[in-house]
Simulated assay, not measured.
Amino acid sequence: MDWKFNAEDLGQIVIGAFALGVPISFSEEAWQLSESLPLLNLSVLVVLTLVFMGLYAYQSMFGQNIRKRVPVFLARVLGAYLITYLVVCLILFSLNQFPLIDNWVVAVKRALIIAMPASMGAIIVDSFDKE
């Protein structure tokens, strides 16, 4: 099995992130949550996101053969999360809900909150052709 990251993988992650990121990005509840969620809770949310992405990637893409491919596994999960975060930032920017200059803390928090469901979409779509 080839574990190189290519344009097809990038496209799958972007499409999966976009599919779940768009509906959540239109949610005023997500916008408001980004203004009030404490840093500790946000940190827990990011860790939970990475854990669930890792569990899904382990089960669907790596299985029992992970010992020799731990760096690839970690790069896959972290890379998918980073790409998802950037897709969410782009979506929020296009909706004028990413106040990076006026209030960068809210912008970053908003993207992190929405990246949670979007990242699950990204990792699931990325796994479709890995079996």
Rank of each mutant, 00 (worst) to 15 (best):
R67L: 13
R67F: 04
R67A: 14
R67K: 13
R67E: 15
R69M: 12
R69E: 14
V70I: 15
P71H: 06
V72N: 10
L74P: 00
L74S: 08
L74V: 13
L74R: 01
L74A: 13
A75W: 12
R76W: 13
R76F: 13
R76A: 14
V77A: 08
L78A: 13
L78H: 08
G79L: 09
G79H: 09
G79C: 05
G79W: 10
A80K: 07
A80V: 14
Y81K: 05
Y81R: 02
Y81L: 12
L82N: 07
L82W: 08
I83R: 03
I83W: 03
T84R: 05
T84K: 05
T84Y: 04
Y85Q: 02
Y85M: 09
L86V: 15
L86H: 00
L86M: 13
V87R: 03
V87Q: 00
V87C: 01
V87Y: 01
V88H: 03
C89T: 03
C89Q: 06
L90S: 07
L90H: 00
L90F: 09
I91M: 00
L92M: 06
L92Q: 07
S94I: 05
S94N: 05
L95I: 00
N96H: 06
P99A: 06
L100N: 02
L100A: 10
L100W: 11
L100C: 03
I101V: 15
I101P: 07
I101W: 11
N103I: 04
N103R: 09
V105P: 00
V105A: 07
A107E: 04
A107S: 06
V108I: 13
V108M: 14
V108Q: 12
K109Q: 10
K109A: 10
R110G: 12
R110C: 10
R110N: 14
A111K: 06
A111H: 08
L112P: 04
I114Y: 05
I114P: 02
A115E: 04
A115K: 03
A115P: 00
A115Y: 02
M116L: 14
M116A: 15
M116R: 00
M116S: 14
M116N: 15
M116Q: 10
S119Y: 08
S119A: 15
S119G: 13
G121F: 01
A122I: 06
A122P: 09
A122Y: 05
I123C: 04
I123N: 04
I123G: 02
I124G: 00
D126F: 12
D126Y: 12
S127E: 08
S127T: 04
F128E: 12
F128C: 00
D129K: 14
D129V: 08
D129Y: 13
D129I: 11
D129H: 13
K130P: 00
K130C: 03
K130Y: 10
K130A: 11
K130L: 11
